[in-house]
């Protein structure tokens, strides 16, 4: 074979491979059909309200964080560089720096504020992901597909809230007791809060909301007019993190 013919063949082969993504359009799965029951009738829009006047009343309370860590198999890595966080506390003047100033109420300024993935309406992490490993579901939850993530960490750079964690090493040795109800993650993928979509599917509240006995966390469907979140948001002043970026967070804070 001449070299030129070889090159031609090679290029043809390569362009053939590029058809692969569309191949599934022509093939059918060999097994029974999967009835995809999309809930198109009145799609929910999940949202959470953190009531800062209740949250933190019990000193050093971490019930919600512990519950999340436990059921999602979050590794407990002591090196802060490699820490994995889905929901955690940060001081008010860090979370809401644009709302903090010198002479403000000192208690509020240093108050611990619960932070987690905001499940933005316009999530920057989703537009930057090169493989659609993170995407926005029809009900607004920003999901992660750990099977597909290549670990480029572009989403971490794009998230204005620092809500994403990378598995810098194998997380398994750092999980005290593995919960069978949820998979762990593997080395080299990005993870974050999933609004407990696995619990929502079973009509359960997110673990953090359920764990908060003081009622400081309220979760629900903002598309439902009679939902509690909707009522709170329409009657009380709430703030969101970095609203000027236009990401439209769905985690709201009331003071």
């Amino acid at each position: 074979m001449k070299r030129r013919d070889f090159l031609k063949l090679a290029i043809l082969t390569l362009s053939g491979i590029s058809i692969k993504p569309f191949a599934h359009l022509f093939t059918k799965p060999a097994f029974a059909d999967i009835s995809i029951q999309r809930t198109n009738k009145g799609l929910p829009r999940w949202a959470m309200v953190v009531n800062l006047s209740i949250c933190g009343k019990k000193d050093g309370c971490t019930d919600c964080i512990d519950a999340c860590n436990r059921i999602h198999n979050i590794p407990r890595i002591t090196n802060p560089k490699h820490a994995v966080k889905w929901i955690w506390n940060a001081p008010f003047d860090r979370v809401f720096r644009e709302q903090s100033f010198d002479n403000m109420n000192e208690g509020l300024r240093k108050k611990s504020v619960l932070v987690l993935c905001n499940h933005c309406e316009n999530p920057p992490c989703v537009s930057v992901c090169p493989t659609k490993a993170t995407w926005k579901r029809e009900d607004g939850i920003v999901m992660m597909d750990y099977h597909r993530c290549i670990g480029c960490r572009y989403c971490i750079a794009a998230c204005p809230y620092g809500a994403r964690s990378f598995n810098w090493k194998d997380p398994r040795p750092y999980i005290k007791e593995i919960d069978k109800g949820f998979p762990t993650r593997t080395q080299g993928v990005v993870e974050k809060c999933n609004f407990c979509e696995e619990r929502i599917a079973k009509n359960l509240l997110p673990a953090c909301v359920e764990a908060c006995r003081e009622g400081g966390l309220i979760f629900g469907d903002v598309n439902k007019e009679d939902s509690e979140v909707r009522k709170i948001l329409s009657t009380r002043l709430s703030i969101r993190r970095k609203p000027h970026l236009g990401t439209e967070p769905k985690v709201y804070y009331i003071l």
């Binding site: 097994f31 029974a32 059909d33 999967i34 009835s35 995809i36 029951q37 999309r38 579901r137 999901m143 597909d145 099977h147 979509e197 599917a201």
Partner: peptide
């Protein structure tokens, strides 16, 4: 993961 459907009809 991608469609949120958890039941399989065999």
């Amino acid at each position: 993961v991608r469609h949120g459907v958890r039941n399989y009809k065999a």
